[in-house]
Amino acid sequence: MLDVMANILQTTVLYSTPLVLAAMGGLFSERSGVVNIALEGLMTIGAFTAAVATLATGNPWLGLAAAMLSGVAFAWPHAAASIRFKADQVVSGVAINFLALGTSVYLVKHLYDSGQTPTVQETLKRMPIPGLDQIPVIGPSLFNAFPTTYIALVVSILSYIVLYRTPFGMRLRAVGEHPRAAETMGVNVVRMRYTAVLISGALAALGGAGLSIAIGSEFNQNTVAGQGFIALAALIFGKWHPFGALGAASFFGFAVALALMGQFFGLTQYVSSEVLNMLPYVLTILALAGFVGRAEAPAAIGKVYETDSR
């Protein structure tokens, strides 16, 4: 029984990590008032770039860095379209998702003449924390995790500190709640939103990178397969708060773990894996409808900010 629990916990941590990182990315963008359904595409380009850069350099840490840069590069057109050109933010996000998947699969086919990258040999390896990893049940999962897991935890805590304990964070949230008031106080709304969307791209791409050079060891067009949308769901289910999103992403990771592990210990005899797969989405809808606590979005989310309108 302890083995089963340890296994489930380990798988939960494994699958939560990319969701947590992408959800933190979404947090910055949406808290500043820019809807980010491009998380899916940003994770995709991150996963692609990490695999290619690691294959080229043999260093997965360079892979992570390159992934973050690619995330910034693909978040930029989203920022430009929705802030500078005042496009509908959802439409622009859809376009980024098309663009990222199209570009990455195109380049994979061009570079490797195949639908997927070769296997990445130099992936990130599990990093045990001496002593702590000996704790029963939680030790092997929490303290013998991939570096991306530790990064995700640090990013979550930092996101909280930055957004709630620094002037920069206060301004960023003010821009997402009441941009006009923020501008009156001297905050540059446009620059703040650009910054937030670009941070969002870096973090979501970092989450995607974990899929291709830590959990997995290759990139193909199904590497991300909707996890960007689950991260978005986690952000909403977590009520646009860093720790809420962290909890929700972990819970959704748990649902994935159950669906995956279920068949090993007979759970799928009672509940089929497809039903378990639906769980995150059903819960998000219920949360939005106010049946599982009300999820309140930032007030100015999705609204174009007109510098000259009164």
């Binding site: 622009s92 376009a95 098309f98 663009l99 199209g102 570009t103 195109y106």
Partner: peptide, 13 residues
């Protein structure tokens, strides 16, 4: 797919 994406971005913006 990239052409589609670019068309959407150009129309939207």
């Amino acid at each position: 797919r990239v052409v589609f994406a670019a068309i959407i971005l150009f129309v939207a913006a």
